[in-house]
C-alpha cells in the first residue's frame, strides 16, 4: 500500500531488558487502511514489541532505533515518550475480556470512564450517547450497556474491548491475540470487524498473534517474528502460498490438514537462538535443516523474493 499514509513505523528498533537484547533490528510499518498480522510463537518477542509500541516497557528497559507515529498534520514524528499517544493515537485491544474488564463494573461504566478520560469536559448524557454509538460501531446493541463482564459471551466481550479501544478515535488499533479464546464463528466475526476498521475507517490495524492460520486470512500483510527479529514480511497471499523463510514454512506445516492425507507426524518448527546471541549469525543456524556454515557466521541480510522480504541465506525459492 505505497500510496497510503504511514501511521506507525519502526526502524532499526530494538529493546534490551537488563542489557540483554530481547528485540533487534525491527523494521515494520503500518499504513492507513491495512491490516498487518505480526505472527510469533511464544518467546518470539511479540509481547516485548507490543509493550514497546504502547510505551509500557519496564522502566529499566533500553530501546534502540526509532519508533515514528503519524501526526495530526499527516507527517511522521519520532516519539520516545509514547504515554500521551496511548488511547488517542494508538488504541489497544487486550487479549482476554474477563481479565481486561473489571468484574464489578458494567459495560456502560467502562465506556463512560474511557470517554471521560478522552474528553474531560464532556457531560454524562453526551458520553452515554457516544457509548451507545461505540457499541453500534462494533456490531453490538445498547442492550449490553447494563451488563457485567461475566454476562457477556467471549465474542461480545472482545467487541466491548474493541469499542473501548475506539473511544479515543485512534489512528492505529493494536490487538493482542484478539481471537485466541473465541470459537471459529466469533473469530471470523471479530476479524471482519477489525478489517472494517481498517477498510472503512482508514485506521491501521496491527494484530499480534501466535496463530498464523487464525489471523492471517484477515491480514493484508504478514510479518513473522522469531527470536526477537523479523524473518519474513510480505503480502499475505505471497507469504502463505509460497513461504520463503524455513520458519514460516515450518509454522504452516505444523498445522494439521482438515482432510486426508495426513502426515504421520506434524512438523515442529525449528527454535531460534535467543536474540542476545545472534548478532553475528542467523538465529536458526543450529536448528534449521537447511543451515550451511555461512548461517553460523553472518546474520542474513534482507532480500526481496516474489513480492516479500525475507531474512535468510537459503530461502526456499520457487516451489
Amino acid at each position: 500500500m505505497p500510496t497510503e499514509r504511514v501511521l506507525l513505523q519502526a526502524e532499526g528498533f530494538g529493546v534490551d531488558y537488563d542489557s540483554t537484547p530481547i528485540l533487534a533490528d525491527i523494521a515494520l510499518s503500518v499504513h492507513a487502511g491495512e491490516v498487518v498480522a505480526l505472527i510469533g510463537a511464544s518467546g518470539s518477542g511479540k509481547s516485548a514489541l507490543l509493550r514497546a509500541l504502547l510505551g509500557l516497557s519496564p522502566a529499566t528497559a533500553q530501546t534502540r532505533g526509532l519508533l515514528r507515529f503519524a501526526q495530526a498534520d499527516g507527517g511522521l514524528r519520532e516519539r520516545r515518550d509514547i504515554t500521551p499517544l496511548r488511547g488517542a493515537t494508538i488504541g489497544f485491544v487486550p487479549q482476554d475480556p474477563q481479565t481486561a474488564l473489571s468484574a464489578h463494573r458494567t459495560v456502560a461504566q467502562h465506556l463512560d470512564e474511557v470517554l471521560a478520560t478522552h474528553a474531560p469536559g464532556s457531560t454524562r448524557p453526551m458520553r452515554a450517547e457516544q457509548a451507545a454509538a461505540l457499541l453500534t460501531s462494533v456490531g453490538l446493541t445498547g442492550e449490553l450497556l447494563p451488563r457485567y463482564p461475566h454476562a457477556l459471551s467471549g465474542g461480545q466481550g472482545q467487541r466491548v474491548l474493541v469499542a473501548l479501544a475506539l473511544a479515543g478515535n485512534p489512528a492505529i488499533l493494536l490487538a493482542d491475540e484478539p481471537t485466541s479464546a473465541l470459537d471459529p464463528r466469533a473469530t471470523h466475526e471479530l476479524l471482519a470487524l477489525l478489517q472494517a476498521q481498517a477498510r472503512v475507517q482508514r485506521r491501521g490495524v496491527l494484530i499480534v498473534s501466535h496463530d498464523l492460520s487464525a489471523t492471517a486470512h484477515a491480514a493484508d500483510r504478514v510479518a513473522v517474528l522469531a527470536g526477537g527479529r523479523l524473518v519474513e514480511i510480505g503480502a499475505t497471499a505471497a507469504v502463505l502460498s509460497q513461504p520463503q523463510h524455513p520458519l514460516t514454512a515450518a509454522l504452516m506445516a505444523a498445522c494439521p490438514p482438515l482432510t486426508p492425507p495426513r502426515p504421520a507426524r506434524l512438523a515442529e518448527a525449528p527454535r531460534p537462538a535467543p536474540c542476545a546471541r545472534v548478532a553475528r549469525a542467523c538465529a536458526f543456524a543450529a536448528t534449521c535443516g537447511r543451515a550451511q556454515s555461512v548461517c553460523a557466521e553472518t546474520p542474513p541480510a534482507w532480500r526481496t523474493i516474489a513480492g516479500r522480504e525475507v531474512a535468510c541465506h537459503w530461502p526456499l525459492g520457487a516451489a
Partner: peptide, 11 residues
Amino acid sequence: ARTERFVPLSA
C-alpha cells in the same frame, strides 16, 4: 467459519 484459508504445505 474455519479461518485457515491457505492450504497447509503438508496437504
